[in-house]
Design a protein around this nucleic acid. Structure first.
Lengths: 250, 250
DNA sequence: AAAAAAATGATTGTTTATGATTATTTTTTG
DNA sequence: CAAAAAATAATCATAAACAATCATTTTTTT
């Protein structure tokens, strides 16, 4: 059996089980323990998994975007409406920060303002931005394998060179007590920084993010506006005391 | 059997299986191992597949590099050899700067050293780097529309955070009196900075760059080594007094 | 049709991957 | 906390796969 083939089997097993014993890999591939150990070492150094005593575990990457393909058309439509509305807030001559992520990516084709300059940490945004002839600056930093987002010290320093009229930021959770949250602490730090460097920050969230909280706090509710889609009126009453909410009609 | 025919069979097999053993290719095409090996090498340098010990694997990214395929085959081959040689200079654990540009891009599939970290200002390099599981940092900065290179103050600041074991830099002109040159002053400045931040800098140039000079000076000849392909002996005698030249055989 | 160029398959030393073995580290158990 | 058990890392011999070379065949050019 080929090395690449074994690696595939190993990763497939992990996808199903989260944590897998060494012996299971041995059985699944009919190779020796030595070989599997070597495979696990390699895959770990490639950041494909994490070795644990007795086997290997899936990397703790709370998948931010696996849902992209899963999500219903309706949710996609919802995100698109949010993105359109967000884009309409941009004025001629604005200097904008666009956070990495699918919702902010969707904004790009709908930016109609002239002489806009964009700074982003999302490499996936680049093609769309250049296609629309929007002058673009990248923050720099470490490239996250999974999301192609720029993070780390380099990204922080890259951002600190600029200040923004408006920033548009994706969030994974909006919560009365925990504020805005996202799974990755690195990204949370950058999102927070973006808010601080902006005249006005907008948090983009579809209805599934309400009353949710994830690992890393970005900021308190009052520090940014929320752009979201139609949702429960009762819920909003509580939040509206704390921050400003722009609602996109479906 | 025609070469093109074999190549099609090879790629078709890969589409079906993801990972295919050399012997399977041999059986499917009734050719010798040598021939298949040659085919796989070619297809790899065309980024149609990835060679693995024992066979070949499908690339996750099937996108082709149009700018590369335009160039003449001969010059491409020459550049490829230069790139291969450059890649072979990288040692385990090295921290590398890869300049934007097609020649440095070609190096990536041939980097065999382990635990290499790459910093680059070439956005086009990203996919290939991540494909090879190489941890990558981007410098940040302004995105040049045409070349997708990062330039400007942001790129300078992004680079100054790091120091490199080796840097690999493309040049447009090598000249006895004018030194290394390139058309864009912004890029020249970055290339110069890369040399200063590196233990050892290598300038990559095919034979068309000799005795040429373009608008912006990068550095004097002695400040970096040259990696180039076979060329006029007389010419070299002059240059060899000034700097070290590594020659790639055609 | 002859000469030149390219492609092919066999041969060669060299490198790489593998599984068994042994030594070391980590975890569990009494 | 120490001894036993399990898992891991390190080493090594072997077998497989590799790149490089060369003679031969096929194709292209003149």
């Amino acid at each position: 059996m080929l090395t690449a083939e074994r690696h595939r089997i190993i990763l497939d097993l992990l996808e199903k089980q989260e944590v897998v014993k060494l012996q299971e890999f041995v059985d699944a591939t009919s190779s020796s323990e030595s070989t599997i150990r070597r495979d696990l070492s390699q895959l770990e150094s490639q950041r494909k998994l994490k070795r644990v005593h007795g086997g290997a575990a899936l990397l703790q990457q709370k998948r931010e975007e696996p849902s992209v393909s899963e999500k219903s058309t309706k949710n996609l439509q919802e995100k698109l409406e949010i993105a359109k509305h967000a884009a309409s807030l941009i004025r001629d001559g604005d200097c904008i920060f666009l956070d990495a992520g699918t919702t902010t990516l969707q904004m790009i084709p709908y930016i109609e303002a002239k002489d806009v300059v964009v700074v982003t940490n999302g490499i996936t945004h680049l093609e769309a931005l250049l296609e629309n002839s929007i002058p673009t600056y990248l923050t720099g930093g470490f490239v996250k394998q999974r999301t192609r987002a720029l993070v780390g010290r380099g990204a922080v320093m890259g951002m600190e060179q600029y200040s923004f009229d408006k920033s548009f930021i994706g969030v994974n959770g909006i919560h009365l007590t925990y504020g805005y949250t996202t799974p990755d602490p690195e990204e949370a730090f950058l999102k927070r920084l973006a808010i601080q460097l902006s005249q006005q920050a907008y948090m983009l969230a579809d209805h599934t993010k309400w009353n949710e909280s994830t690992f890393s706090k970005i900021a308190d509710l009052h520090e940014a506006n929320i752009i979201t889609s139609e949702c429960d009126e009762e819920l909003w009453k509580l939040y509206k005391e704390k921050t400003f909410i722009e609602v996109v009609k479906k």
